[in-house]
Amino acid sequence: MSTVLARQNRLKIVSLLSPAYIWLTVAIFLPLSAMLYFSFLSDVPFGDAEWHYTSENYQAFFQTSTYATLLWKSIKLGLTVTVISVLVGFPCAYVLAKAIKGKSREALFLLVILPFWSNSLVRIFCWAIVLRGNGVLELGLNAILPFEVDVNLMFSTPAIVIGLVHSYLPYVILTSYLALQAIDDNLIDAARSMGANKLTILWRVILPLSLPGLLAGAVLIFVPVVGSFMEPRILGGRVGTYFGTVIEDQFVAVFNWPLGAALSFILLAVVLVILATASPALRRAQT
């Protein structure tokens, strides 16, 4: 009797779960494995191209400093964008979670995260319009300031950073907000009743308790920024060569897929290390 039930249950579980997970396997996990395989080939195994197994693609990364330099440049870009987003976004999340109440809080929160769900490419394009020489920013500043300024941030690192912060800022606001909102107001009241001032409360109570959320937001920003290529291309022009754009080139311009696969895999390794390091914090942020 119980085995029949168990079998029935197993059937239900399998039939409900397998479509979704087979799809994920085919579209995500098999491709990642295929990429690992490809990264050890000398050439694409299609048509009549000659190919053999090799570790040259990985050696390329370690032999010339070009790729390592670019990876480091991408990591620095990730750190810059993450730090700025955290510094800008955390106070914003705090104001939303603790200083604003009721309906207006919900509306403002929605306003903050709404752009995040609109097309990221389009938003980068918006900045291209604003930042270009003779663009809106320059015209606006010249209208306000008594002297002429020449603002052409387009095709510069600051432009890339501004665009990326704009793209990913809502992440850190979202996760910090959720963490801050979960802090029982009684804890703040309790700290006050024991004589703590605002700074002490921030440092000793609020920051430690919202740290998992803050870290989760930071990781969610850092990871995609390290792999970004579209933003540097559009806003960076010639200075916009990063690890991500090099990978893109291997697939759409140079057509050296095995090298692209190896570089992608190195990037994935970096990402996994970061995710693994942060995973205790991420798990805590989830609950």
């Binding site: 491709p31 990642l32 295929a34 990429m35 995609p224 792999g227 991500g244 990978i247 697939f251």
Partner: peptide
């Protein structure tokens, strides 16, 4: 846990991996 890689891995990696696999 398997749900997180598609969200957490940069789309650049997922996208190029899919390209390789679908060609393969």
């Amino acid at each position: 846990v398997m749900l997180f890689p598609p969200i957490a891995i940069p789309w650049l990696i997922t996208g190029t991996a899919m390209l390789i696999f679908f060609y393969g």
